[in-house]
């Protein structure tokens, strides 16, 4: 084996500068997750198949005839997204924990919040991709038109809040003895406001309600997103550092 001297040729190690370093680290974490996922597609396929199965079960459980559909579509969609979301969150954090990669991330001279935001971006991307696939499938199966810019915005806002708090709690859950079992138990009770608001706002758009009826829910989603992104930003250090 070649063991020639290791010198730093044209390479320079930069001290992490504040903003540039932060953005670069966020990008690196997200890029790493997306590349790995693009290659294995484990997460995406399991989330997608799981979502389709949930919708299938709802079909028989709720007898989704035309009249019922009107009122329950948004609920069915959000329950599906929430379940698929926990699946993705668990997997994405377990990958970090299993091979000690979390330590690898923590050893890098970057702000811990950068790691959090990187994971949020990749988790959000997985969830949105699944949602984008599920929507047309649902429209096709039940001939409901789901292509409504308002609805897409609600889905985005709801997913941000759900993933923001979910990433924080998943990082805690993977460090416990019970691991993945714990995540839904931790996440669902604190994610209730975001689910209620997302269901009501999506339902509002699907029923063609007036915007003034939907606005309070959208405001609630935005408030929730801001509060929980901010709080996760502040406490993530305590979750990953010893």
């Amino acid at each position: 084996m070649d063991s020639r001297p290791l010198t730093v040729s044209s390479t320079t190690v930069r001290r992490p500068s504040s903003t540039v370093g932060f953005v670069r680290a966020v990008g690196a974490v997200a890029w790493k997750d997306l590349t790995a996922e693009y290659r294995s597609r484990e997460l995406f396929s399991s989330m997608l198949v799981f979502s389709l199965l949930v919708i299938l079960i709802f079909n028989f459980a709720l007898e989704l005839d035309i009249k019922t559909r009107q009122s329950v579509t948004s609920g069915v969609l959000w329950v599906t997204f929430a379940f698929a979301g926990t699946l993705g969150l668990n997997r994405s954090m377990a990958v970090e924990k299993d091979r000690g990669c979390l330590d690898g991330l923590l050893l890098a001279p970057v702000d811990r919040a950068a790691i959090y935001f990187g994971k949020v971006i990749s988790n959000l991307a997985f969830m949105l991709i699944v949602e984008i696939v599920i929507l047309p499938v649902y429209s096709f199966l039940y001939s409901v038109n789901l292509f409504n810019p308002g609805l897409l915005m609600v889905i985005l806002l709801g997913s941000i809040g759900y993933i923001a708090v979910g990433t924080l709690l998943a990082s805690m859950a993977v460090q416990t003895r019970t691991r993945d079992v714990l995540l839904p138990i931790l996440l669902f009770p604190v994610a209730i406001p975001v689910l209620i608001a997302a269901v009501k706002a999506s339902g509002g758009y699907l029923n063609g309600d007036e915007f003034s009826m939907i606005l309070p829910w959208i405001n609630l989603l935005i408030v929730y997103d801001i509060i929980f992104v901010a709080i996760a930003f502040m406490v993530f250090d305590y979750v990953v550092e010893e």
Partner: peptide, 8 residues
Amino acid sequence: YALVGSLS
């Protein structure tokens, strides 16, 4: 978690 819960 107590903090997250108290906000939620």
